[in-house]
Design a protein around this nucleic acid. Structure first.
Lengths: 168, 168
DNA sequence: AGTTCTCCATACGCCACCGTACGGGAAGTC
DNA sequence: GACTTCCCGTACGGTGGCGTATGGAGAACT
């Protein structure tokens, strides 16, 4: 899913890639959707772990920077939000996406409140930041050559951080 | 493509939907990729038309607001950039996406220069604005319920406009 | 030692879609 | 009026994927 999206989760190609067969797969999983469900549960755990890791950073400003940093330099497709947004009509994907995203935005909003924003502004800002993160992830996947390279990459990252710095 | 992405461009379903048959299709188009190519050429024209329309707005600040407005309230999936970003590895899609996007960012950068930004900052800002636009489009498509509704929608729009206002 | 349970491979039918072959009618052309 | 060109429909083969049926080898239990 990270590499090639939801469509790449196909039973037969996966079995081939793992050197096994469909017979094995359908013993472990009811069907394809069950595999997707299991994968998304892993994603939820991962997402929780990331938030826990971030929560250990006591300085809220530093925490915000850490998150931006992650959006830029995290592993390719570290976050599958974009893939899920694209496939949000899928009956298994939709609920997961909504749950996790709502949680993340709420989390970001509370971070922004710590930084001195009023509740409404905090949520607006969290939404905006999330959109930027989604945009970055999508561009990194689809048109990375348009992103600044090398030294300019750092400069751009700082630019985004400054842009997203909450201003009470 | 607007409604359901690149994967929805399928010869047989399309023929069915148009009340015709594949035989007809393959007379007009060499193959599926040729149709995609033709569709993307339309998209380029549309994109050019949008930039021309925006160029008629003399006040650059007003022009920026108009573009943000468009990102929010334009027709659903008005811009297929997100779809194309997701399918950027497709041999027909990739070149189109790169060309149009590069052009748009350059266009945005020059707008930002008009507003008083230095060339590098202008380009950085245009990139940032493009990412926000992409993020908005993707969220509008995949999780519109997370966006503020009604009155709050306008407030959020203004918030984004303020966030993206170039600050020389 | 026999039985049951676990795990996996082979084989099959089904569906959706791509692209091609071919035929035939309608419309224009000489 | 014969001929060609345009446009489209039907039929076919091929590919890739899903899910099921079935059998079988080995482990585990009794």
């Amino acid at each position: 899913m990270r590499e090639s999206g939801l469509g790449a989760i196909a039973v037969e190609p996966l079995a081939e890639r793992l050197g096994t067969t469909k017979g094995s797969f359908y013993w472990h999983f009811k069907d394809r959707d069950a595999l997707i469900h299991a994968a998304l549960e892993l994603w939820v755990e991962e997402s929780d772990a990331m938030m826990s890791a971030a929560a250990r950073i006591t300085d809220p400003a530093e925490r915000g920077r850490w998150l931006t940093e992650f959006a830029f330099t995290g592993p390719q497709g570290a976050d599958i939000s974009t893939t899920l947004l694209v496939n949000s009509t899928h009956p298994v994907v939709g609920p997961f996406l909504e749950r996790v995203t709502e949680q993340r935005i709420a989390w970001g909003a509370s971070l922004n409140e710590e930084l001195g924003l009023a509740p409404e502004a905090a949520r607006q800002h969290a939404l905006a930041a999330w959109m930027v993160a989604v945009g970055i992830a999508l561009v990194r996947r689809g048109a990375p050559q348009l992103l600044p390279q090398g030294d300019e990459s750092d400069a751009f990252k700082r630019y985004i951080m400054e842009l997203l710095r909450p201003r009470p």
